[in-house]
Design a protein around this nucleic acid. Structure first.
Lengths: 124, 124
DNA sequence: TTTACATATGAATAAACGATCATATGTTCA
DNA sequence: TGAACATATGATCGTTTATTCATATGTAAA
């Protein structure tokens, strides 16, 4: 095992970049970082087993909180907490009927995202 | 503020479920939990600011690691670690040319996922 | 107006995660 | 063969996050 030579190449790497033209060109077309973070946050909501279970279930049928608990075998408060997150980002919507609150996917994009993701998973 | 009555309604809730038929019907159509977890993991990969930056950049152009470092202003090892995660799930692919490794999106589904997610973000 | 049920929520905690540092590996060229 | 560069990776660490518990809120029926 060798000792490091002298100066860390790492620092320079970031600054130099290999293909300045490409980097600058892509930078122009990159959404601003707020937008990218919003996008990341949307996907993060899909990126958890419990939440993806909720979403897939709701893509099949509107369901109340207790239905989701039973289906996914999770505590009621866990489901409620996650539904709150999903609702805040308009991924699901809620409708109260007496004591019961029914949840559903907010729009068709959500279903299409689920389907498209599944295509990638299924194609091995 | 009231004291709790007697027995926790919470436990029963999970078992009872309000709409047994719906729950059982949805259960039949729900993918098995391994598949759902794979799907969640795929979305989780999209659910981070650095990785979504990488992915959006690669949707514009093939780029090497140093290009991505410069573009996103991140340390080389951070980028490399994330590229490893993305590669493991076949979200990106790598091509070596001498010392330089070029990364690109693995297939068209990835680009479509990005676009579809952005539609949701943009429509306020 | 209590009781029971359905849902929501704050606090606490353990687990997962991303960035960093140090260093290793792989490649080219002198 | 050794110096320089590009990339990869293991270990560490601070932060984030999902779940749980306890309890609050909201609603309906007795």
């Amino acid at each position: 095992m060798l000792e490091t030579k002298k100066a860390p190449a790492t620092e320079l790497c970031e600054v130099k970049g290999i293909h300045i033209e490409i980097v600058e060109d892509v930078r122009k077309r990159l959404p601003d970082s707020d937008t990218l973070n919003e996008l990341a946050y949307l996907f993060k909501l899909f990126g958890d087993g419990t939440r993806i279970g909720i979403l897939w279930a709701l893509s099949e049928s509107e369901m109340c909180v207790c239905d989701l608990c039973a289906l996914l075998n999770m505590k009621q408060s866990a489901i409620s907490h996650q539904l709150k997150n999903l609702k805040q980002s308009r991924v699901v919507k809620a409708r109260r009927e007496g004591k019961v609150v029914y949840y559903a996917l907010d729009d068709e994009h959500i279903r299409r995202l689920l389907d498209l993701g599944m295509v990638h998973v299924k194609e091995q």
